[in-house]
Design a protein around this nucleic acid. Structure first.
Length: 469
DNA sequence: CATCTTTTACTTCTCTCGTT
DNA sequence: AACGAGAGAAGTAAAAGATG
């Protein structure tokens, strides 16, 4: 993989810098271990004298569910570490008193998968400056806080495990608003759980999210034979998505059990799974669930990471995603990009890939609009350029468009379209280089003399808002 | 008319099952 | 255990409807 190779070379020559939270497999299949793990560990050698692994003299402080022989998940996040901790080895779990106060539990015995029939054990603490919030997907209680873009990314858009419906329809809010109050607002409403009227039955069912589907679900009896009923919940979360992340407001407490079936793997759980699969590349899905065979019997199981991984097919799929990243990796992109360019000769007029990535495209029609034979009536001569946010999945990437007026169609048409992974001067430089080259090529095609006046009308749209100096 | 909630249409993800 | 097809559930965004 091209990018993987570049990363390897970079790390080889700049050894102290590592990608955060990254655990990679070395060429001989062993995991690259962190310095803190190696310190105090005794190396194990194979018959040729190569280090094949490390044994800890003193067992590290055990964290529930962290598999043996696996490097710990990446370092604690540095920015906002006091507020938001992911993969912390000193996880603090809070329980709520009837008065609504949160008390830390010193030795948490409960694991996620066994909590559904016990009292609420929320790990989300009421927000106050410096509060530590651990996003476990079960937001509960009254709290309000901001999540940065990194945190949103890290929590898979603040994914929650409660069965819920999402209410959108906010026409006023802007996704990239400067203030969270003006952000795009969505509401998540908890759907509660399904239970049956047999008091001895402890079965809890996850409600379906579509009303029709839920009605059908309620018509069926519980597996104990009793009638099912819907234990509703009115806990709402309001999320304002704005330019700096998501402002999250949770209202009320869930007074019902947790739905027994979880759907999502949170990113930190994915990383732990990845570390385990990488450490045991030959071990199949079932063995990963039962526990990797070792000298002392089966080792840790992936099911300890999340209940989601109790499903063998799901483990197969998640494992497959790790083992066959070719469809989404760097090689695939380069190959697909090369094929794309080859199949569409002349369409990509400029491309630069790296820290500053700009890809400019133009069809023959678009090129034909770059030069006008005569001056048009009205304020439609020249080119207008603008950059659109929110076009690509990556929020910082832009779609730059330089448009020109087409007298035949009586409307403005795009002249050059560019993908840019940022909005720096260098990004603009590449885009406008493509524009100028396109103008020059069109002029040459029409046997016109390439002179300064052809380029005089190119202007950034943003400048039109400002008074001319 | 503005705001909030519900419904709808569409996309993406997850699960299940049969075959090899 | 791998693979793929298909069903159905969840997720998303916006339109439609309800409310004050």
């Amino acid at each position: 993989m091209v990018l993987g190779f570049f990363k390897h070379v970079y790390r080889y020559f700049v050894p102290r810098v590592q990608d955060k939270d990254e655990v990679e497999i070395s060429r001989d299949g062993g995991a690259l271990l962190s310095d803190s793990f190696i310190a105090g560990a005794v190396p194990m050698y194979d018959t040729t004298g190569r280090i094949i692994g490390y044994v800890q003299n003193k067992p590290p402080v055990s964290e529930p569910g962290i598999p043996k022989n696996i490097p710990p998940p990446g370092p604690t996040r540095i920015e906002n570490a006091s507020k938001f901790v992911i993969g912390s080895t000193n996880e603090i779990i809070y329980t709520r008193t009837p008065e609504g106060h949160f008390i830390p539990i010193q030795n948490p015995e409960e694991k996620q998968g066994h909590a559904q029939h016990k009292p609420l054990d929320t790990k989300v603490k009421e927000d106050f400056p410096g509060a530590e919030v651990h996003w476990d997907g079960w937001p509960d209680g009254k709290f309000e806080r901001d999540f940065t873009l990194d945190e949103v990314n890290e929590t898979n858009d603040l994914a929650i495990h409660w069965a819920h419906t999402v209410g959108g329809g906010d026409r006023k809010g802007q996704r990239f608003a400067e203030e969270w109050m003006n952000g795009k607002r969505v509401t998540r409403t908890c759907l509660g759980i399904l239970q049956c009227d047999n008091q001895d039955c402890e079965i809890t069912i996850r409600p379906h999210t579509k009303p029709q589907s839920l009605r059908t679900q309620l018509l069926k009896p519980c597996s104990c034979g009793a009638m099912l009923y819907h234990l509703k919940c009115d806990v709402k979360s309001i999320l304002w998505t704005w330019s700096k992340g998501i402002h999250y407001q949770n209202s009320g407490y869930h007074v019902h059990r947790r739905p027994p079936r979880k759907l999502h793997l949170l990113p930190q759980e994915k990383r732990r799974f990845e570390a385990m699969v990488n450490a045991h590349p030959q071990v199949g899905p079932l063995q990963l669930i039962v526990g990797v065979p070792g000298i002392d019997g089966p080792g840790e199981s992936v099911a300890d990471i999340s209940d989601v991984l109790l499903n063998a097919d799901r483990v197969t799929k998640e494992r497959q995603k790790l083992k066959r990243p070719a469809d989404t990796g760097g090689d695939h992109f380069i190959r697909a990009f090369a094929k794309f360019e080859q199949e569409r000769p002349g369409f990509i007029i400029l491309s630069t890939i790296g820290k500053v990535t700009v890809i400019s495209v133009q069809t023959p029609f678009m090129q034909s609009q770059m030069v006008k034979d005569e001056v048009l009536d009205g304020p439609v001569n020249g080119m207008v350029s603008d950059a659109a946010h929110g076009w690509w999945k990556e929020r910082t990437s832009l779609l730059m468009v330089s448009s020109t007026y087409c007298p035949d169609l009586f409307c403005w048409v795009p002249g050059v379209l560019s993908f840019t992974n940022g909005a720096s001067g260098e990004h603009f430089m590449y885009h406008f280089l493509a524009v100028f080259q396109a103008i020059a090529h069109e002029a040459e095609k029409r046997h016109l003399e390439v002179e300064d006046r052809l380029f005089a009308g190119v202007r950034d749209y943003a400048l039109y808002d400002k008074p001319t100096q």
